[in-house]
Simulated scan of single mutants.
Amino acid sequence: MGDAISSPTQPANALKPRLALHGISKQYPAVKANDDVTLVVQPGEIHAVLGENGAGKSTLMKIIYGAVRPDEGEIQWNGEVVEIGSPAAARKLGIGMVFQHFSLFDTLTVGENIALALDDKFDLKKLAKRIREVSADYGLDVDPQRHVHSLAVGERQRVEIVRCLLQNPRLLIMDEPTSVLTPQAVKKLFTVLRRLASEGCSILYISHKLDEIQALCQSATVMRGGRVTGRCDPREETHASLAQLMVGHSLPDYERREHTPGDVKLAVKNLSVASEDPFGTSLKDVSFNVHAGEIFGIAGVSGNGQAELLAALSGEIRDKHVPADAIAIVGQPAARL
């Protein structure tokens, strides 16, 4: 299993890391988000940052991107000490970031959204040409004239990546990039990231999906409670050893037991609801039963009606649009409750 704390392995020919953090700390009123964090990323390296929710990963990434200022510590970029006071300063250095929750305007075109993130002056026609060239070169298939509301989730992520690529990043931060993607889109993303790495771009990859980390990353830094608790080569670890580094103890063994469904507590029958949001997803003939003692899962790529379904079940839109007999709770139509 990876070392609890050890110096990250550096190739003999890597004299200057692309990014080096030393003693980074950030204190908020109720919690110390980062506590004496050290992180080294080499040129062309795909480096994972692992940890549970609240481990301090997002704060650290925001510090690197200039969205948060550290209280203590030093940041080195290509061997030189720098202060990254804003995302614009980070982009000027060559640092790009694709956030977990996309920052795109639905009513604008792809080209207009990308233009908003550029720090230099631009011409929309010339920019559209550059977008087509870059997206075609990397196989990202982005049309600058399409409106964002017409794009699928995977296409929206391509827009975010192309927006970064237009600024020639030397370090790309990917925050939970596959949380809303289909398996096919994940494969496409990995192809792009591996190509970027082969061209010398360093990648910081944040994810909870250990199989992805092992398939993509050459090294990993593990965080827990705001501190670095381990470093390893994830390709030489198992899921269990990586998880143990993340949580600090061995995981309990679980066994699946037979389950006998109880009475129906929630019944949804032929639920159809037209979305009030012009960019939302309407529900069409949704039916399912939830039994007593049952853990019922609703799966799907983000943007496929989950929010609308929960709004209908919670009563947020029931009065106006949901048929009275479409939802029953403990045998009673929800409209009567």
Rank of each mutant, 00 (worst) to 15 (best):
M246V: 09
M246P: 01
V247Y: 05
V247M: 07
G248K: 12
G248C: 11
H249K: 15
H249C: 15
S250P: 13
S250T: 14
S250C: 14
L251C: 14
L251T: 14
L251Y: 14
P252L: 12
P252E: 10
P252Q: 14
P252S: 13
P252F: 14
D253L: 13
D253I: 13
D253R: 14
Y254I: 15
Y254M: 15
Y254K: 15
Y254E: 13
E255W: 14
E255P: 09
E255D: 12
R256K: 14
R257E: 08
R257G: 06
R257C: 07
R257L: 08
E258Q: 13
H259N: 03
H259K: 05
T260G: 03
T260K: 07
T260H: 08
P261G: 00
G262I: 00
G262A: 01
G262L: 01
G262M: 00
G262E: 00
G262S: 00
D263I: 13
D263N: 12
D263M: 09
D263T: 13
D263E: 15
V264T: 07
V264G: 02
V264A: 04
K265V: 08
K265M: 06
L266G: 00
A267F: 01
A267T: 01
V268F: 02
V268Y: 02
K269F: 09
K269H: 12
N270K: 09
N270R: 08
N270C: 11
L271I: 09
S272L: 09
V273H: 01
V273G: 01
V273C: 03
A274L: 11
A274N: 14
A274H: 10
A274C: 12
S275P: 04
S275W: 00
E276Q: 12
D277P: 00
D277T: 00
D277S: 04
D277H: 02
D277F: 00
P278G: 13
P278N: 15
P278D: 11
P278R: 10
F279T: 07
F279K: 06
G280A: 11
G280Q: 02
G280F: 01
T281N: 12
S282W: 01
S282N: 10
S282H: 09
L283V: 04
K284C: 10
K284L: 11
D285Y: 07
D285W: 09
D285I: 09
V286R: 01
S287H: 08
S287T: 07
S287D: 06
F288N: 08
F288G: 08
F288R: 10
F288S: 10
